[in-house]
Computed example of a mutant assay.
Amino acid sequence: MLEAFKGFGVTFGTMFKKVVTEQYPEDFRPTAPRYHGRHQLNRHPDGLEKCVGCELCAWACPADAIYVEGGDNTEEERFSPGERYGSIYQINYLRCIGCGLCVEACPTRSLTMINFYELADDNRQDLIYTKEQLMAPLLPGMEQPPHPMRLGDDEQDYYVHAPAHAKDPNVADQVEEQVK
């Protein structure tokens, strides 16, 4: 009998407290810095894509939400430093469970997850993101692919020495000079 009154005590205690209501669309709350939201395909400092079309992210996805089709680079049209690039890349956010296994499987650190989390729409087709929607924006000093490699002569210069290129503040200036 005493337990029933304890339960009613909790109910009556919360009944007269002020209700906490978040005004979501108007009062946008920022996420934590390491929050995993929407995916992003990253670029090298000269603008070439990091994705080499290996399809490991699609194999690692437990929800089968990723579709990748690799294409071959040519000297006339180079999208990534390697022999291949992801010519078709799609993520179906109707199926994605946000686990991040695709990010862990990516050997070139091309695929990451950003803080953006507003993934709701009234059209199912709009929730299938294509490569153009997933690509990171071009920063100053980057050139829209396809273009020749600017940071070295082979893919080893991009993938082995990439941290040095990314940390060097003069890389953007060097890329701009080579583009001109």
Rank of each mutant, 00 (worst) to 15 (best):
A162Y: 09
R150G: 04
E83T: 09
P81W: 00
R124Q: 14
E77Y: 07
F28P: 14
Y93D: 04
G98A: 01
R150F: 05
T108W: 07
D122A: 12
V160A: 12
H44Q: 00
T21G: 14
D126Y: 13
L119E: 10
H36C: 06
Y24W: 12
T130A: 06
M15Q: 11
D126L: 14
I66M: 01
Q23K: 06
G53F: 06
D121M: 12
Q90E: 15
G7M: 10
F79H: 11
D72K: 15
P169N: 02
V19S: 10
T11Y: 09
G37C: 02
V68K: 05
K180P: 04
R34M: 09
V171C: 02
Y24K: 13
G82M: 03
S110P: 08
H36V: 05
M135E: 01
N42F: 06
G82Q: 03
E176T: 14
E55D: 12
Y24P: 09
G86T: 02
S110G: 15
Y35L: 05
V10K: 14
Y159I: 05
A172K: 12
F8D: 07
E26H: 07
H165Y: 04
H147Q: 03
F116S: 08
L119I: 13
Y158W: 00
P140G: 13
H44A: 00
E104D: 13
E176V: 14
Y129D: 03
L101C: 11
M149K: 02
P62A: 09
H44F: 02
E77L: 08
R150D: 03
E22C: 13
E75I: 09
K180T: 10
P140H: 13
T14R: 14
A32E: 15
Y129L: 07
R84Q: 14
H39F: 05
T14W: 13
R109M: 12
R43N: 00
C61Q: 04
K131S: 04
D27L: 14
E69N: 15
E26D: 08
V103S: 02
L151D: 00
E75C: 06
L101S: 15
M149E: 02
R95W: 04
Y35N: 03
G98V: 03
C102R: 00
P163T: 03
E118L: 15
R38L: 11
L139W: 03
I128R: 05
L111E: 02
C54W: 03
P169S: 01
N123V: 15
P30E: 14
V179Y: 11
W59F: 11
D64N: 08
Y85W: 08
P81K: 00
L127K: 03
E143H: 06
G152C: 01
R150A: 07
L2Y: 04
Q144W: 09
V160N: 08
F79K: 06
P163R: 05
P107R: 07
P145F: 05
F8G: 08
M15W: 11
E143N: 02
A63C: 10
A60S: 12
D173A: 13
S110F: 06
M1L: 07
R150V: 07
P81M: 00
R109V: 13
V175H: 04
Q23V: 11
T11P: 07
F28R: 15
H161A: 11
P146D: 12
T14H: 13
E104G: 09
T74K: 01
E77A: 11
M149Y: 00
